[in-house]
Design a protein around this nucleic acid. Structure first.
Lengths: 146, 146
DNA sequence: CGTCAGTTGCGACTTAGTCTCGACAGGACC
DNA sequence: GGTCCTGTCGAGACTAAGTCGCAACTGACG
């Protein structure tokens, strides 16, 4: 396997052991791309006979979440999904057809939030914006289908 | 009991039967105010010996969600909570100390989203913004504590 | 190569939510 | 007020997601 996995590198950098299960989770994530749920990953691992236990999968995901290598996000369906992402603050646009995700910065959002804080009287500490729609690719497909 | 419950009215208007369990859920929600989780409501119902079954509670919540009388939201902890709310599109600011919630319109958010769509190439169909912080009341308390 | 703390697998447990199905009751109509 | 029909309910089994405790294992470092 092409062994230059950025997630593994990040774990190493953070001083965690590079164990079998962690490498497995890391490569599944990198290879899968886009967002995924814990059970999808478990399924994938099972297909490949990676011998990854459910507990370890969750532990690895927790760890990656803590290191901000992946982020947890909630799909409109109520499922919990994860997306591999950059470590800076940002938001996700999720394609509701193919699951592709893109990170975006908060263009102008900061001002909107300041305004909301002013009007509501809240001191806003954190926020979370999730956008759902169709990616460029799926827009084209939709047009062709029609 | 003061029987003018807006949730009950909305159910009636939508043509649903006004049954015991539904009235119970409606009054618990109105009286509780702010956001709540399904299990909090179940707990409350148990304390009051309302004889509300778990299944009916979930069914009622599903129904109310569908009618947009309550909205499902995801707390940073990953829990699913519900907030009673207006039926128009809006967002919530949630106080992370006392749980109070306020609805806000998307001041300037529309432009931010248009910009995001332009840059990402996505056609954004829906979005969801959740803000967490301290409400006016809790800000004061925090200041006093310090 | 040996050591040992950090990790793992197992499996039991918890919690959220769903489903099935027979019983029940709201409300429309008489 | 009584009847009926259908929508709704309760009970409880079931599923899925996630957690926990513990003994066994293993990476990494000396």
């Amino acid at each position: 396997m092409a062994d230059s996995n950025p997630i593994v590198d990040a774990l190493d950098l953070a001083g965690y052991r590079l164990t079998g299960p962690r490498r497995a989770v890391a490569s599944l994530i990198v290879e899968h791309g886009g967002h995924f749920t814990a059970s999808q990953l478990a399924e994938l691992a099972r297909e490949r006979r990676l011998g990854l236990s459910r507990a370890s999968l969750f532990r690895a995901l927790d760890l990656l979440t803590e290191l901000r290598i992946v982020e947890r996000l909630d799909l409109p369906s109520g499922e919990h999904a994860y997306v591999p992402c950059e470590q800076a603050h940002h938001h996700h646009v999720v394609c509701s057809r193919c699951g592709r995700t893109t990170e975006v910065e908060d263009h102008g959002l900061r001002e909107a939030i300041t305004e909301i804080a002013r009007q509501s009287g809240f001191r806003v500490d954190s926020h979370r914006l999730e956008l759902f729609g169709l990616c460029r690719h799926c827009q084209v497909r939709t047009t062709l289908d029609a």
